[in-house]
């Protein structure tokens, strides 16, 4: 394999492995938010707002993996 093939392999691994953690995290986050909305529907608006803040912060981790994959494919040639 030439070095560039390793870079592309690494990009795929970075995206795939980097998506595991945020995936689990988002599942827990949204599940808990739905649980608390079901328990207390009167504060659903507040919970939803805070849930979106959490989603934004959690999802950024996967996007770092995406950016690293982009750098591996297009920049580190």
């Amino acid at each position: 394999m030439n070095p560039h093939a390793y870079a592309e392999l690494g990009a795929g691994l970075a995206m795939g492995l980097g998506a595991i953690g945020p995936g689990i995290g988002l599942g827990i986050l949204i599940g808990k938010a739905l649980e608390s909305i079901a328990r207390q529907p009167e504060v659903a608006g507040d919970i939803r707002t805070n849930m979106f803040i959490g989603i934004g912060v959690t999802e950024a981790v996967a996007l770092y993996a995406f950016v690293v994959a982009l750098i591996l494919v297009f920049v580190a040639k």
């Binding site: 934004g56 996007l63 950016v67 982009l70």
Partner: peptide, 13 residues
């Protein structure tokens, strides 16, 4: 960094 990369990476992806 995270504020800018989040929007950028979401739109690119």
């Amino acid at each position: 960094v995270s504020l800018s990369v989040r929007l950028f990476a979401n739109m690119v992806a």
